[in-house]
Design a protein around this nucleic acid. Sequence first.
DNA 1: GTAAAACTGAAAATGATTATCAATTACAGT
DNA 2: ACTGTAATTGATAATCATTTTCAGTTTTAC
Lengths: 143, 143
Amino acid sequence: MKLSKKQIFQDFASSKGLKSTKQRDTILDCFLSCDQHLSTEELYLKIKKNSPGIGFATVYRTLKLFAESGIAREIQFGDGQTRYEHLQAGEHHDHLVCKRCGAIVEFENETIEKLQSEVARDHGFTIINHKLELYGICKNCNS
Amino acid sequence: MKLSKKQIFQDFASSKGLKSTKQRDTILDCFLSCDQHLSTEELYLKIKKNSPGIGFATVYRTLKLFAESGIAREIQFGDGQTRYEHLQAGEHHDHLVCKRCGAIVEFENETIEKLQSEVARDHGFTIINHKLELYGICKNCNS
DNA sequence: GTAAAACTGAAAATGATTATCAATTACAGT
DNA sequence: ACTGTAATTGATAATCATTTTCAGTTTTAC
Ligand SMILES: [Mn+2]
Ligand SMILES: [Mn+2]
Ligand SMILES: [Zn+2]
Ligand SMILES: [Zn+2]
C-alpha cells in the first residue's frame, strides 16, 4: 500500500527528531490542498487567510522540510521565485511553461529520458537529476 | 562571411543609438577572451585586475546588452548567480553540470530537440526556447 | 513536573541584482 | 573647435527573495 504524503512526512519528522507542531500541520494541510507549483509567498498568503499569526519564516522553513522529506520538489521557472510541487515518490515529469499567461503543463516522455541517459553515458557522467523545461505560448494564448 | 562578435555588437550598438565607450570595449574584450559560463561577478573581478575603476553596475549593464545583441546567452545553473556564455548565431546546445566540481560540458542532440517539438505540438504549445540541464557527477569526479 | 531541545515569529541580515543620480563623456550639428 | 543634448558611468541606495538571529514558547522524554 502507498503511504500518504502526510504519513511520509510524519515518518521523516520523527526519524529526524523534529517536533510536531500545529504550524507544520497547518502548512502541510494547506500545501496538500493547493494547486501545484505554488511559490512560497503564494502559499504564505493563502495560509495567512485562515491562520494569521503564522510567520513567513516558518513557511519558508517548512517547505524546505517538505522537499527534504520527499513529498515536495523545489522548482524554478526563472521568474525569481522558488516554487514547490507535490512529488509522488518514484514519479517524474517535466514542464511546458507559457510565457504569456504562466500556465504550466506537465509531461512525461520516456524516449527523451532514455536519450538523456545516453548523452550522460557518452560523456562519462552519472546523472543525479535533470531539468527540462519548454517555454513558449500555450494553446489558449495562441488562439 | 561570418561577422565577428565584435562586429555584431557594434552593429547592434549603432542601431540602438548606443555610444561607444572604452568601458564597453574593455568588457567586450575580456568577455570574448574568457572561458565560457562566467558569472557576472567572476567577469567583474577579472576585469578589475587590468582596469580597476570599472564599476560592477557597468559590468551588469553591459552583459545584459551583450545578451540583447545576440552575442551572449544568459544561463542559470541554480547556484543563484546568472552566467553568460558566448552564443554563436543559430547554434544551440544544452549542458551537463557536475555537482561536485562544477564542470560544465556542452552537448547537442538533434533527436531530443525533435522530441521536444513533438511534445510541444501535442500540447498545442509554440516553443520559444527551452532549457535542458543534466546534473550529476563528471568523469573526473567519478574516478 | 522538569529540563533540554526544538520551534516560532519578528526583525535584522544577506546576497544578487537594479535603480537613482550627479558628474562625465560621446557625438551630431554648427 | 564649440555647443547642446542625450547617453554613460561609478558610487550608492534600494529591491526582492530568502536566511539568520534571537528571545520567548512549546514539545517531549524522563
Ligand atoms: Mn510539475
Ligand atoms: Mn554552454
Ligand atoms: Zn498561455
Ligand atoms: Zn566533476
